[in-house]
Amino acid sequence: MYVDSHCHLSMADFAPRMPDIRAAMAQAQVDRALVICTTLEEFDAVHALALQYDNFWASAGVHPDTEGLREPSYEDLLDLGSRPRVVAIGETGLDYYRLNGRSIEDMAWQRERFRTHIRAARALGKPLVIHTRSASDDTLAILKEEGAGPGEAPRGVFHCFTETAEVARAALDLGFYISFSGILTFRNAQDLREVARWVPMDRLLIETDSPYLAPVPFRGKVNQPAYVPHVAAQLAELKGCSAEEIGRVTSDNFERLFGVAA
């Protein structure tokens, strides 16, 4: 019934707990998950989960915050993105939240990495998983410069959305989906709930971003895919429908965006 469209399950702490994580998913009616890659070094572990479990899929990409590890080339992303059960490129994008004394101009390496991901996604015909934090203007500008737009590749999703209504509208205008996480349930997230209220149903996704950002009533605990129905319940309250309807719609959207059959 529910799909977790963005989770990080390749971390070492999760490996011995995977039977319990999957059992909790089944009990919560979370029947599928997209496991997200953030470094080239972790790709094999991410991909192994998608190969081992028939209701997991994988992405291929390097998070914008990643430094000091292997830099992804266009050829790397084409190779990894072509492998079985890899359905997306990313997590990619821009993050200016922690500049650590640097200027935005100093972050040119992030912008070039983002462009590399966009070009690989276009070549593969696969969607992008976009991370943007304190960088929405540049994120949108680069997508436009690289030719993103309705009916054109690349397409994708702005994951764990926390930006303004104006940014959401610009992302939707480019043909992207908007994914909401457990942040939507936080007491101080009223502005975000107002954004979620008007995002069209056919462009919504839900996620946990596990192991981060557990929703209320689990805030402060380790997040897991079984908690994604709590995001659906919050969206249902905003939309005036049932959580089951949110589950159905977001599952349909997941299948359409990532080319994953029911």
Rank of each mutant, 00 (worst) to 15 (best):
Q190K: 14
E163P: 10
R98C: 10
Y177S: 05
R193C: 02
F14T: 12
E145N: 03
T208R: 02
P215W: 00
V216L: 13
L80F: 14
H131R: 13
G175H: 07
V195G: 01
A233F: 01
L34F: 10
G90N: 07
E146S: 12
D79P: 01
I118E: 02
V231E: 10
P217R: 04
I36N: 02
G259K: 11
L192R: 00
V86R: 02
E112Q: 12
L128H: 07
D20W: 03
S251L: 06
H159M: 14
E67R: 11
P19A: 09
M107H: 05
H159W: 15
V199Y: 06
I183T: 15
L51K: 05
A148I: 03
G247F: 02
I183C: 15
A15G: 05
D95S: 12
P84M: 11
Q110W: 13
M201L: 10
T132V: 11
R187C: 08
G220M: 09
A45E: 15
D209C: 09
A135I: 06
G125D: 09
P84L: 12
E145I: 05
E112D: 15
V46P: 09
I36K: 01
A243L: 02
S251A: 15
L140P: 05
G93R: 04
Y177M: 12
L69M: 14
F161L: 02
T38Y: 07
P225I: 01
R17K: 15
A168G: 10
Q27W: 01
I206Y: 01
T208A: 04
T185M: 05
A165E: 04
V228L: 06
D95K: 06
S181P: 15
P127W: 07
N223E: 03
D137E: 14
E146G: 08
G101K: 11
R115N: 14
G151I: 13
L51R: 10
R83F: 07
A214H: 08
S5A: 13
S82R: 13
L40D: 01
E112K: 11
G247H: 05
A196S: 14
E67Q: 09
C7G: 02
P211S: 10
A58K: 03
R122F: 05
S73H: 08
A45Q: 07
Q190W: 01
H6P: 03
G182R: 14
N253Y: 14
A23N: 03
A121G: 07
I130L: 15
E255D: 15
C7A: 07
F158H: 06
V157H: 08
